[in-house]
Amino acid sequence: MALLDICNLSVEFATAHGALKAVDGVDLKLDEGEIVAIVGESGSGKSVAMLALMGLLPWTAKVTADRMLFDGQDLLTMSAKQRRKIIGKDISMIFQEPMTSLNPCFSVGHQISEVLAQHFGGSRRSHKARTIELLQQVGIPAAETRLKAYPHQLSGGMCQRVMIAMMIACQPKLLIADEPTTALDVTIQAQILELLVELQQANGMALVLITHDMAVVAETADRVVVQYAGQQVEQRAVKDLFENPRHPYTQALLRALPEHSQGELLNAIPGVVPGQLDRPVGCLFNPRCEHVQEHCRQTPPTRNEDILCHYPLPLAGQKP
């Protein structure tokens, strides 16, 4: 049985200009110990989908799904109290801005032991040894002395390590990392990604990595979900996807990378991601697609073999 099983998840926001469909029919199945990356541009709904899973969206959001199972339990029907028991313990999430994700008023030791106290009970003092162990586990040197440090005394990379320590404190079965390295320097990014993968392997947890960076995906994930304008357009094993993208958007995204350019200019994708008011008819990608046909402009495609396209690109070695 899959650890996480989401079927047809949609999220709508009520805004001044009417309803905004941020996530539109996303499916996601995740096994234990698997690393799945969700890639997409801003506005693709990649963060919103995961926030919906965590129940962290504001009241203006309307979440609907056919199925939302975690470890066999139905997240849709359970009470808020039951849900809180799972969220934060079995499912954890780390965010892009490590500096603002930590409370600046409390020492890092205090904040970690608070998480432990919340989910395992007992006094804060009794959790000290475990807190030090966690800090060591995420590679913070001289962990004992860092217990009393406040977030502003640590660098961005260190803060992100503390966040990770806090999130793995309860040994979650699923860790969602929302752009965990975007705010960090390249050399620190490499360290943090490595740490996440190490922890994932050591604890056997599943990892959902939300990112916009194709290169990070290539080096980290097992499976990739590509999202565009709230829709899930392709879902494949990472190697297949990079060698042989089948959705035109994935293909264009990969070609646009500087290392894949031929000659002076890059292979840019024309146009912009559609906004709330200018969603095209038919396939949402059709105004920017180079393989577009008349059919695409009129009928929205349905998902076939996890590809949301009327005319998916052929597999290598296969005639179209």
């Binding site: 926001f13 805004t15 905004l20 941020a22 801003s42 506005g43 919103v48 709330q276 008011l277 200018d278």
Partner: peptide, 11 residues
């Protein structure tokens, strides 16, 4: 994030 202000129609 999807909660940014929407661009208006070209009209």
């Amino acid at each position: 994030m999807t909660t940014t202000t929407a661009t208006p129609s070209p009209a």
